[in-house]
Design a binder for these strands. Structure first.
Ligand SMILES: [Zn+2]
Length: 687
DNA sequence: CATACCTCCTGAGAGC
DNA sequence: TGCTCTCAGGAGGTAT
């Protein structure tokens, strides 16, 4: 199975129990496999082998063993199907087990580990530690680890000159980069718009830089997801990865390209196939095939040498922030949701754009140290930005100084929960909505707001009607009403808006904060709140308040509706105001709902049919007056400029910002693409 | 030498 | 149903 992320997952899983364990016996079950016999005999001669560490190099797993006879390395290569699994001896032995390892773990418990390898290509060998550093082993010839591959691009251009092999063959050669295989080569090449058959010698210096950056990001992202689990592959603890759900090209031969719809093809490389999209490739196999009109028609870049912005580039243009009064910040998943990269595409997860009087956007800078910022808000107390970072396991709260020369946030604070997607601030308190964990993290800002500390996590629980999306709580939005009476939390997973009386909550948090102990997790049942219940399966997502704070409007992601909440009631009921946008019968997943600065209109973004709905407010009700195409694909967020004349739309899947002009009657027009930025997820315009 | 092809295996799924 | 065919997370060996 495994490529680097999967072998790394195997390593982590094995290390949990094997590190500091003792290897008691290695039993070969196949007398006919000479390699296994050799390992068994070798280990028989070593008494009392302590397992110091489990390492990984490329796709090799290395058990580091210490014994009175010296140090040894058990070097394992899983090839296609080899892997270890823990065995319960009361159960029958699974098929294709070729060896067993008896151990005594650090707590004195015996364990039996099986080596299973259906196709028998995997290898196990025992080497004296010295031979790892010197011998002729292939392990010694491996190139740099793919997840930290930072090549000297100029040297590669020089080295490849005059050679003919394809870039796919080059990447698969473990002596160039270690750890890549068919999956990640396929995905990385598509992300770079490279045909697998392109000769490696055709790559320019920026091409190599971009390719290596994409490879690093891809592998790190895949590792955070536990790798790819195809068919029934599991790690030694039975765990599955989830990156296979994000394969865009691999395993989709003859299906439609997720980026352009063209039927995917494949190229034979080294006896197997690497998929690709014939239309998305920007660098064809041979230069003479690149017809100018074809390239123009496709809107792709004119020259491969044209510099491409990636997340490691510091400044996009030297223009400084203080020259312009309006600034649009775009947050999102720029580092990882990758694309065939048209010219001018900004791939940062947080970027700043100056807004001219005519509404044009000019990139000012990126923040390379910020990853996956799913939501960004201003700190009302100063000039800082507050954001949440939706990273693999533990989410983070970020404080960013947009004026700083540094690309790194001032602070990145663990929020004790996963998948944050929204946040709000009230004085020195920050609350994050954690979609992944279904919780609210409460953090206290330091006096200068340049640092923060996690004080408590309020954990929701429950589920609702949609088995795929509502198997548990998924807190999607948090906010405080204009009168500062309640902290509202919209939970998509349990079909409810919860409102926590703010003064009581803050009092409790202040007490916890003063105690200066580790942040506790509070069951939401133990924190006073009202529960505003939605119809089953609606999946409430985002909310806005009417200007007087008496009324709330909630858009539901699963039901595609807008609901009104009369917040002056002791227990508000929800009132259905109709479709958020699009049409009945379409698959629509609304994302944003925003109040226009005139206080009389609402805008909704409709993912699916890619529309924007405009509502006119009339007291506690709202009526939809427009249902327009958003100009892009998958409108994830909207933002009204402060003067109310412009509405920005972040199109996550077409990687662009579209712009609408807002008339005095609240209707919008336009939808032209004004900026290319990869996977935008949130917008914030400040003056 | 660099590069393309073949091989070592078993099982799953498609097509007939 | 069963049969044949192709393909699968890899890499080492062998012809050109
Ligand atoms: Zn395509």
């Amino acid at each position: 199975m495994p490529e680097l992320p999967e072998v790394e997952q195997m390593r982590r899983s094995l290390a949990r129990r094997l590190e500091h364990a003792h290897l008691l016996m290695f039993i070969s079950l196949r007398p006919g496999f000479p390699d296994l016999t050799t390992v068994a005999l070798g280990l028989e001669a070593i008494r009392d082998a302590a397992i110091r560490r489990i390492d990984r190099r490329g796709k090799y797993l290395i058990w580091r063993l210490d014994s009175p006879e010296g140090s040894f390395a058990l070097v394992c290569h899983p090839r296609m199907t080899g892997h270890f699994l823990w065995h319960d001896e009361t159960q029958p032995l699974p098929p294709h087990i070729h060896a067993m390892v008896r151990i005594l773990d650090s707590s004195g418990e015996p364990g039996l580990l099986l080596w299973q390898d259906v196709r028998r290509f995997g290898t196990l060998e025992l080497l004296p530690a010295g031979r790892l550093e010197t011998g002729p082993h292939a392990l010694l010839r491996l190139g740099p680890e793919a997840d930290s591959w930072r090549p000297d691009a100029a040297a590669l251009v020089r080295a490849e000159r005059g050679r003919r092999r394809s870039i796919a063959a080059w990447l698969l050669d473990q002596e160039n980069v270690a750890g890549l295989g068919a999956i990640y080569v396929t995905e990385a090449l598509h992300a770079c718009g490279l045909d697998p058959a392109t000769p490696a010698s055709r790559l320019s210096r920026p091409d190599w830089q971009r390719l290596s950056a994409v490879v690093r990001d891809l592998l790190r992202w895949a590792q955070a997801r536990g790798g790819s689990s195809i068919s029934d592959y599991v790690d030694s603890d039975g765990g599955r990865g989830s990156f296979q759900l994000e394969h865009r090209i691999y395993g989709r031969y003859r299906e439609a390209c997720p980026d352009c719809g063209t039927t995917l093809g494949r190229r034979a490389v080294g006896g197997r196939h690497i998929g690709y999209c014939p239309r998305c490739v920007r660098l064809p196999r041979f230069r003479h095939l690149a017809k100018q009109d074809d390239i123009r028609h496709r809107g792709r870049i004119e020259s491969v040498e044209k510099p491409v912005c990636d997340s490691s580039s510091e400044r996009i243009s030297p223009m400084s922030a203080q020259n312009t009064s309006r600034m649009l910040y775009v947050g999102g998943y720029g580092g990882r949701r990758i694309d065939p990269a048209p010219a001018g595409l900004v791939t940062a997860s947080l970027s700043a754009w100056s807004v001219t009087d005519t509404g044009e956007l000019t990139p000012v800078r990126t923040f390379a140290g910020v990853r996956d910022s799913s939501y960004v808000i201003p700190d009302p107390a100063g000039d800082l930005l507050l954001a949440v970072q939706e990273s693999g396991r533990g989410g983070r709260f970020l404080i960013v100084d947009p004026r700083s020369d540094s690309d790194d946030p001032l602070a990145a604070v663990n929020i004790g929960a996963g998948g944050p997607c929204h946040l709000t601030v009230h004085g020195s308190w920050v609350f994050t909505a954690n979609y992944g964990s279904g919780s609210i993290s409460c953090l206290r800002l330091a006096d200068d707001h340049r640092q923060a500390r996690l004080v408590a996590v309020i954990q929701h629980s429950g589920s609702s009607a949609n088995p795929g999306r509502q198997e548990g709580p998924h807190t999607h939005w948090v906010g405080i009403d204009p009168a500062s009476c309640y902290l509202y939390a919209v939970d998509l997973g349990i079909d409810a808006v919860l409102r926590y009386p703010l003064s009581a909550l803050l009092e409790r948090l202040e007490t916890l904060s003063a105690a200066d102990a580790a942040a506790p997790t509070l069951d939401f049942a133990e924190v006073r709140h009202d529960r505003i219940v939605f119809p089953d399966g609606e999946g409430p997502r985002h909310m806005v308040f009417s200007p007087d704070g008496h009324c709330g409007f909630v858009v539901t992601e699963l039901g595609n509706r807008v609901f009104a909440l009369d917040l002056t009631e002791a227990l508000p009921a929800v009132r259905d105001l109709g479709l958020a946008g699009g049409s009945e019968g379409e698959a629509n997943y609304p994302a944003a709902i925003r109040l226009a600065p005139d206080g009389r209109h609402l805008a909704t973004s409709i993912r699916g049919s890619n529309r924007i709905g405009i509502f006119v407010l009339d007291g506690a009700t709202a009526t939809r007056i427009q249902n327009l195409p958003c100009g892009g694909v998958w409108p994830r967020d909207l933002f009204y400029a402060a003067d109310g004349r412009t509405l920005w739309c972040a199109n996550e899947q077409s990687h662009e910002i579209t712009r609408f002009t807002v008339a005095a009657d609240g209707t919008i027009a336009g939808g032209e693409s004004v900026a290319r930025v990869s996977a935008p997820a949130c917008l914030l315009e400040v003056l």
